[in-house]
């Protein structure tokens, strides 16, 4: 059977090949689709750290995705309207610089993950799912009523934010940025799972009692993982907002949290490249089947059902011929 490392390289290579083909035949829309897939994959790679390694089924990761999106939206809105952003004690100018926006998105979502994690990680199982869902709904309804930033209508950003040396409005260049960040997150994820921390976290999911008896605290391990996970998903949110040049409360919706979980389950829970496969398949189905029928979710559901029933390791599990870690 095929090794997981080669699947990872093949999948990333295929994504690049599709984009290269689109570039040659001049199909910018396909590049935009690939960018969308890369961003959703990045969000799911983030969630996969909490869900796959740490076993935390968070139904609230849209919080971080949305916070990343609003970090971008608010900063860019103030930059394009030349108004100051009042933070209470100080007021700062907005920015159209992607790296700055990314740092803010990472910081804000990490902080939110810390607070949400501190409260919700005291529970587990279905209670954890419900608490994270509740946080998601809180943010969702807050965003809807936040009229300063568009409320339910959201915020439009007219020009995509800039990255030094690149023209981000050219689809291939923006794809390059997203793809590079996805690869960086995958690399980080790979290092993380082989590190002492990853080893302990992985065991904390499987046998919490053991982790305690070797003198470690599962709660702390999970909290740190949840923060890292939330920050990566937040970064993806900032990119997603930049892709659409639009932010709205739907980025906080629980459907999005659910979709991220679906992406991971399709690809393979806890598998490094699982979220990327799931995201590519999701975007492809959404586009091709969505063009044929409004009810394309039915087919997505059928695929999900098939995988849950017959391939517990997801697509990566099918290819490697090994059951997933979560049997």
């Amino acid at each position: 059977m095929i090794g997981e490392r080669s699947i990872t390289l093949v999948v990333l290579g295929l994504l690049l090949a599709v984009v290269a083909w689109a570039l040659v035949v001049d199909e910018p829309f396909t590049i935009t689709l690939a960018t969308r897939a890369a961003i959703l994959a990045l969000a799911a790679v983030g969630l996969n750290i909490a869900l796959g390694i740490g076993g935390m089924v968070s139904l609230g990761h849209a919080v971080f995705f949305g916070l990343g999106g609003y970090a971008m939206g608010i900063l860019a809105y103030h930059a394009q309207s030349f108004s100051a952003l009042d933070l209470g004690l100080v007021s700062v100018a907005g920015t159209k610089s992607m790296p700055v926006i990314w740092l803010v998105a990472l910081g804000v979502s990490a902080l939110a993950a810390l607070l949400i994690g501190l409260l919700s990680l005291r529970t587990s199982g279905v209670y954890f799912i419900m608490i994270t869902l509740a946080f998601g709904q809180m943010f969702y309804y807050f965003a809807i009523s936040w009229s300063a930033y568009g409320g339910e209508d959201g915020l439009s950003i007219y020009v995509r934010n800039g990255f030094p040396g690149l023209n981000t409005l050219v689809p291939i260049q923006f794809f390059g940025i997203c793809f590079a960040l996805l690869c960086a997150a995958l690399f980080l994820n790979a290092r993380l799972r082989a590190s002492p921390f990853g080893l302990a976290l992985n065991a904390a999911r499987q046998v919490p009692a053991r982790i305690e008896t070797v003198g470690l605290t599962p709660f702390r391990l999970k909290l740190v993982a949840f923060v890292i996970s939330g920050a990566i998903t937040g970064l993806a949110g900032a990119l997603f907002a930049d892709l659409n040049r639009f932010v709205s409360p739907t980025m906080f919706s629980w459907q999005l949290s659910g979709e991220l979980i679906v992406l991971i389950v399709i690809g393979g829970v806890g598998r490094l490249i699982g979220p990327v496969i799931g995201a590519c398949l999701f975007v492809a189905l959404e586009h091709w089947l969505g063009g044929l029928t409004e009810f394309w979710h039915v087919y997505l559901g059928a695929i999900l059902l098939g995988i849950v029933l017959f391939a517990r390791g997801g697509i990566v599990g099918l290819l490697t011929g090994r059951e997933g870690p979560h049997v």
């Binding site: 290092r191 993380l192 590190s195 002492p196 921390f197 990853g198 080893l199 302990a200 982790i211 070797v214 003198g215 470690l216 391990l221 740190v224």
Partner: peptide
Amino acid sequence: LGASHRPWRFWR
């Protein structure tokens, strides 16, 4: 790991 009190290493 537990005995060394150092699980907070993320890279190596």
